[in-house]
């Protein structure tokens, strides 16, 4: 699992690559700290290369969303595969995020 953050056009774009399971979540949590420290910038979670997510990963996504919203920022998700879309649907996460 790799997590990379790049600033593009004033937005923080975060690229997730691989399996965001419970084993990978502690490192991913460290990697996303800059998103939590950011100052109301819009955040894009790029899931084009994300193969799998479990509740540990959903927990991170929700943490990012809560932090951004509290500062007036937006969180956009892009590139989710159908399996991950299904997990978002089952957990009601589809209603929480904005999608591109």
């Amino acid at each position: 699992m790799n997590t990379t953050i790049k600033e593009q056009n004033g937005e923080l774009v975060t690229y997730f690559e691989g399996r965001l399971d419970t084993a990978a979540a502690p490192q991913a949590e460290k990697d996303i700290q800059p998103l939590l420290a950011s100052n109301g910038k819009n955040i894009v979670l790029d899931c084009n290369a994300l193969e799998y997510i479990s509740s540990s990963g959903l927990r991170l996504f929700l943490t990012v969303l809560k932090s951004a919203k509290s500062k007036g920022g937006h969180v956009f998700i892009t590139g989710m595969n159908n399996d991950i879309r299904n997990v978002f649907s089952m957990t009601g996460f589809t209603n929480l995020f904005e999608f591109r």
């Binding site: 479990s54 509740s55 959903l58 927990r59 929700l62 943490t63 969303l65 809560k66 919203k69 509290s70 997990v87 089952m90 957990t91 009601g92 209603n95 929480l96």
Partner: peptide, 24 residues
């Protein structure tokens, strides 16, 4: 079961694991 109708601000961070087991 978690309340899936809550807004992000009110959603608790945890509690989805067992729910997913029962859903699947």
């Amino acid at each position: 079961d978690p309340d899936l109708t809550l807004q992000a601000e009110d959603r608790p961070i945890g509690g989805l694991g067992i729910f997913l087991v029962r859903q699947i």
